[in-house]
Design a protein around this nucleic acid. Structure first.
Lengths: 238, 238
DNA sequence: CCTCTTTATAGTCGTACTGACCATTAAGGA
DNA sequence: TCCTTAATGGTCAGTACGACTATAAAGAGG
């Protein structure tokens, strides 16, 4: 970085958050309604300015706490996606935005966080045209999370502290949009050391009918070797 | 993004580039020597300010062209890594830096690009302590590229337009730091449709001795299904 | 010219992993 | 009591992969 040769222009730096969770087995994203122009009345990803003493990660976590009204936001998975810096992405001014994906286990109801705008959980497929370039950010978040499910233990970030293998499978199915074979999924997860560990003697009725499912906790592992590949979308080498 | 509720502070936005290439079978990175404080005399990643009319990607490609003095920089693979925004990462001012990894096929000699500072190719392992947080950026670039070799066709970005399978294997071995079995690597690459396509009737003497190797071009595929996993570094589920 | 060395290429074999199934168990509802 | 539902346990064949051996085609040295 050379500071003496070039002039530099100050930019506004913001964070945008794709806050994802599972509600009723479907992937949902947290959206806020914009109150003023541009894009007044449109829905957008929550976000805000990075303060002078903050890193982008700190700002993202602060915004996440404000928007979701969650008391403990420290344990949540927050992942930096990429930075969007097209000169015309905001019609008013030069804004560079660092985008994050946040993964939530449960889905607390949210109605208007710190800001006046109302906030709402929206099914991922129904997250219509969003303000600014937020459609692209949301799509990038979806793609990144879907890819990381393949080779990391990220799926447990969508689950409560104790969960059944069926709930874990629902995470994969909701994010990937495909059905998975239950016995095969089970075999794969249990064969990966450190992915999940059983909660001794605990079980949960899955919703009334059926055999109660055993409960598991997230294990110590973070990577999946070998990975859990999603079903081939098209014709592949296999 | 709420513009009316919070004050915002202007930041300087820069790009930092981890320019990687293969020289004599070893991974090298392009470094520039800093001329002034802070870190005067230290080596650093090339980079510079994002101009008012540029995106970070445009700025990165411009800086890449300036630093490498390459005429055609448009076809090179440029990948955004992440954004580094710790408040104290630059002692002088608040600088937010968008980091990129750039992959070069051949290794043109570079000696001082646009700026007065001299530039040099340095073996990755000998890229000593760098200025600012550039050690971390370089390590992140290495990790990202190593990971993407597993499940994308990125390796061809290190190769000239026509290359042998031995050269392609050298890319994997240099980035991963491990030796690979040559027949198995060959089988895997050729079994992946669209990874490489043969150049009919062409062959190249690998350096004098030995049977001449067939030449290949990069194919149309971008993803590897199933992936080409690196040898398990520790004990894994396999 | 023959042989050794070097490197590319071809093939083999056993194991691990995966996808597609089928079977059993344990709960609630009719 | 029987049916439905969902979890759990298992089989079986195809595929992929690691380790390994064999052959082919070049240059080097005697």
């Amino acid at each position: 970085m050379e500071y003496d040769k070039h002039a530099y222009e100050p930019f506004a730096v913001t964070v945008d958050l794709a806050v994802l969770t599972l509600r009723a087995g479907a992937l949902h994203v947290l959206l806020v309604e914009r109150g003023q122009e541009p894009y007044a009345g449109s829905w957008a990803l929550p976000g805000g300015f990075v303060q002078p003493d903050e890193s982008a990660e700190t700002a993202a976590r602060r915004e996440l706490a404000e928007e979701t009204a969650l008391s403990d936001v420290s344990g949540l998975h927050l992942e930096q996606l990429r930075t969007y810096s097209e000169p015309d992405r905001d019609p008013r001014m030069r804004v560079v935005s660092v985008a994050f994906a946040a993964l939530l286990p449960d889905a607390p109801e949210v109605h208007g966080g710190s800001d006046a705008a109302q906030a709402r959980w929206v099914p991922y497929d129904e997250a219509g045209p969003l303000a600014f370039d937020h459609d692209r950010i949301l799509a990038d978040a979806h793609e990144r999370v879907g890819a990381k499910l393949e080779y990391t233990c990220l799926a447990t970030a969508f689950c409560p502290p104790e969960f059944t293998l069926g709930e874990l499978q629902q995470v994969y199915e909701a994010v990937w949009g495909t059905a998975l074979d239950r016995p095969n999924f089970r075999r794969k997860v249990l064969a990966t050391p450190g992915f999940v560990e059983p909660v001794p003697g605990a079980s949960r009725l899955t919703g009334g009918r059926g055999k109660p499912a055993a409960l598991y906790r997230a294990g110590a592992a973070t990577a999946l070797h070998p990975p859990l590949l999603r079903p081939t979308p098209e014709g592949h080498s296999a």
